[in-house]
Structure formats: C-alpha cells, structure tokens
Simulated scan of single mutants.
Amino acid sequence: MKKIFGFGRKKKGDPPPGSAASPCPAGAYELRQKELGKLHRAAAAGDLAQVRQGLKKHSIDGRDKAQRTPLHLACANGHADVVTFLVENKCKLNLFDNDNRSPLMKAVQCQQEKCVAILLEHGADPNLADASGNTALHLAAAAPNVFLAGMLIEHSAHIDAQNKEGCTPLTLAVSEHHEEMVELLLKKGADVHARDLCERTPLMTAASGGELKLVKVLLRYGADLSHKDTNGWTAEDYAIIHGYAR
C-alpha cells in the first residue's frame, strides 16, 4: 500500500548532502542562516533577548523566503519561552508556511510537546490542513505520539479528518503499525469503518500488512469483515493477496 507521508523526500531548497547543518529534531526546517533575517534567526536559535530586540524593528509576523514566521521557527525547534513571548505579544497563530503548515503543525511534527500545549491553550486551530490534506492529528498519528494526539483531541481536533487520499489518522496509524495509537484513537471514538478514496478500511490496511494484533483490535471495535473496496476485495482478500492467508 502506498505510503501517505514522504518526510524523507528531498525538497527544493534543502542543503546538498554533506553540507554543514545544525542538529535538529525530525521534521524540523533545514535552515540556511544567510537567508534568515535577525528576528527569524533569533527565534530559530531560541535567543529570547534577540527576539525582543528584533521586534523593535521587525514585524512579529514577518515572513522569510519560505513563508515562515518567527513562531514557525521557534515551534519547530522547541523554544517554548520564545513561543510564549510571541504568543503573549499577539502574533498570529494560524499562518501557513510554503508547505501549508501552521506553527502548531510544525510543533506536532517535531514533537515539541510544550510548544503544542502553549499554542492550543492560546487558541491555535488544530483542524487546519497542509498541502496534502493532513491535519495536526494526522502528524501526531504518524510520529507516533500518543500524548500529542490526546492533547489535540481534547482541544477539538477532528478525529476522523480525511487527507487528500481519504485517510484518517486511524488509517495512518494502522498503516504505520502503531498499536498504541490505534487503541487511543478507537477509545476516543475514531470511526473503525473509515474509508479512503478506494473504499479501503483500516481493517483492510491491517490485513494487507499481516498485522494480526491490529486486526484483533479493530475487530474488537466492530470492524466489518464483509466490506468490499472499489476492486470488490474484502479484508480477507487483502490478507491472502499479500501472503498472509493464515
């Protein structure tokens, strides 16, 4: 089954292999210091004093060449004190970067739990979608980070939101073999019968990967064995086709 995320793909603007780069969390922005203004550089580095100084000359919501705000950069790198300062000074919470990702999405993708909590407490929208239709909850399911997923759901994240392939966070968690995440989503009311654009259910995804534990979990929550996708295949057919007849 096709992977939903391509986090490892090289994007335009990424530094060439072997180029110098500071260590950064998975999913964080690749930064070229020469392309960043003083305020953006300070936010990315977590230099609160320089952020304060920079706001005297620059807009708190100013964009760099990749449409990132200081809040995007602080969130991606886990600088909670800078995030708090920017939020308390009324920065805009829901602006998009070039990938249509909000600061909240970047904080979730980079698993910056404190930053996520600050943003949600101040009203950041958990239901915005990026260029692939993925919400913050999709990103949490992919991480996987059960704590972040629970926090997002508590702040009214749509648990059955579909991305452009029709996949919900549950479908993604199943495809990535994240049993704990699957359990959490189902306990919180995720639709066990969710269907993607090809009418495939989470049970079919689990069966095609030979994930017996996940199959059992999904069946326990009432997954339908008889449902057929656009090819007329059932979950059992998926298991057999992928070599898991037993």
Results as ranks from 00 to 15, higher is better:
Gly8Phe: 13
Ala141Asn: 03
Lys114Tyr: 04
Val182Cys: 09
His155Phe: 15
Asp130Asn: 14
His178Ile: 04
Tyr29Met: 06
Val51Asn: 03
Pro169Ser: 11
Leu120Cys: 07
Lys12Tyr: 14
Asp237Thr: 09
Tyr29Pro: 02
Val82Gln: 03
Ala74Thr: 13
Val192Thr: 10
Ala28His: 01
Arg220Trp: 07
Asn145Phe: 03
His177Phe: 07
Asn89Thr: 11
Ile60Tyr: 01
Arg101Asn: 14
Gln109Asn: 10
Asp81Trp: 07
Gly189Leu: 15
Arg9Pro: 00
Gly54Glu: 08
Lys65Gly: 11
Val182Ser: 02
His138Val: 05
Glu180Met: 13
Leu148Gly: 02
Leu197Asn: 08
Gln53Asn: 04
Asp160Phe: 11
Gly54His: 12
Ala206Gly: 02
His58Thr: 08
Lys90Trp: 12
Ala206Leu: 07
Thr69Trp: 05
Ala142Met: 03
Ala143Asn: 14
Arg101Gly: 07
Val146Asp: 03
His242Ala: 09
His155Cys: 05
Cys91Gly: 01
Asp224Met: 04
Asn89Pro: 01
Glu35Tyr: 15
Asp160Asn: 14
Asn231Pro: 00
His177Asp: 06
Ile118Glu: 09
Glu211Val: 01
Gln53Asp: 07
Lys92Tyr: 12
Lys187Ser: 13
Phe7Ser: 06
Met1Phe: 05
Leu119Trp: 07
Ala42Ile: 09
Leu36Asn: 04
Pro16Met: 06
His122Thr: 13
Ala107Ser: 04
Gly6Lys: 12
Leu39Met: 13
Ala190His: 08
Leu86Lys: 04
Ala20Tyr: 12
Gly78Phe: 09
Arg220Val: 08
Asn100Leu: 15
Arg32Ser: 11
Pro202Val: 15
Ser132Leu: 08
Leu219Thr: 02
Ile60Met: 05
Ser59Val: 05
Ala173Leu: 04
Gly232Asp: 12
Ala142Pro: 00
Leu39Gly: 09
Val116Thr: 09
Ala223Ile: 14
Val174Gln: 15
Asp224Pro: 02
Phe7His: 06
Leu48Phe: 10
Lys187Met: 13
Ala21Trp: 04
Ala190Leu: 14
Asn145Cys: 10
Leu185Cys: 10
Gln112Cys: 15
Ala66Leu: 11
Cys115Gln: 04
Phe96Thr: 02
Ile60Asp: 00
Leu219Lys: 13
Leu93Met: 12
Leu55Thr: 05
Pro169Trp: 10
Thr201Gly: 05
Ala76Lys: 04
Ile241Met: 08
Asn145Gln: 02
Lys213Gln: 11
Ala20Phe: 15
Asn127Val: 06
His40Asn: 06
Thr205Glu: 11
Ala245Tyr: 12
Gln67Asp: 06
Lys65Leu: 10
Gly54Thr: 14
Phe96Ala: 03
Lys90Val: 03
Met151Phe: 01
Ile153Lys: 04
Ser132Phe: 09
Ala107Pro: 00
Arg101Glu: 14
Leu73His: 11
Ile60Pro: 00
Gln111Asn: 14
Ala239Pro: 01
Ile153Arg: 03
Gly222Asn: 12
Gln33Val: 13
His138Asp: 02
Val146Gly: 02
Arg200Phe: 02
Val174Lys: 15
Thr205Ala: 14
Arg9His: 10
Ala136Thr: 08
Gln111Asp: 10
Asp191Val: 10
Ala194Lys: 08
Gly133Trp: 13
Trp233Glu: 06
Glu180Asn: 12
